[in-house]
């Protein structure tokens, strides 16, 4: 029983210490921010220029790292997905063009199949086999007679 109470006390003490440490760190951070805000008003042009150059360098390094990561996952700097099929394919522009043409033809084929299925019931063959003969649909006089009746 005593052992359990001791453990609970130790855990509570540990939480209190962590909270206190976080508060101190937050206070230090706020102090740093205040100091920086105060100091930024007094920067010389040379210091501003150096800071700007350092920022540009950091941004360019970050961009370079991100590009390398993207390339590692299959997309190179120009967004070329052919890298997925290996460098040999990616380096040949003619393969890129051929793949594009194949994709277009495939899309055309799929669209034609869809259109064919969709229009099947409206084809001339189904018109000829309809309940009414084609003359009934084509006869302008019949339409006029229907309108007048």
């Amino acid at each position: 029983m005593n052992t359990n109470e001791n453990k609970t006390e130790k855990v509570n003490d540990s939480h209190l210490m962590n909270d206190a440490q976080l508060m101190v760190e937050a206070q230090i951070a706020n102090h740093i921010v205040d100091l920086l805000d105060h100091r930024v008003q007094q920067l010389t042009p040379v210091e501003v220029q150096r800071l700007s150059a350092a920022r540009s360098l950091a941004v360019s390094q970050l961009t370079s790292l991100q590009t390398q990561a993207a390339s590692h996952h299959g997309v190179n700097q120009s967004g070329h997905v052919l890298q997925w099929f290996g460098h040999h394919v990616g380096q040949h522009k003619i393969m890129s063009s051929a793949l594009l043409v194949v994709a277009m033809l495939l899309a055309l084929f799929v669209a034609q199949q869809f259109s064919f299925t969709h229009n099947l019931e409206n084809s001339d063959a189904f018109l000829l086999a309809s309940d009414l003969p084609p003359e009934a649909y084509a006869d302008k006089g019949f339409n006029a007679w229907l309108d007048s009746n």
């Binding site: 018109l127 084609p134 003359e135």
Partner: peptide, 21 residues
């Protein structure tokens, strides 16, 4: 009969057939 219809008649028939359906 269908093959002897004029293009006008056939086009009319197609449109009317769609409406009929």
């Amino acid at each position: 009969n269908w093959s002897r219809m004029t293009p006008y008649e056939r086009e009319n028939a197609r449109k009317r057939h769609q409406q009929f359906q």
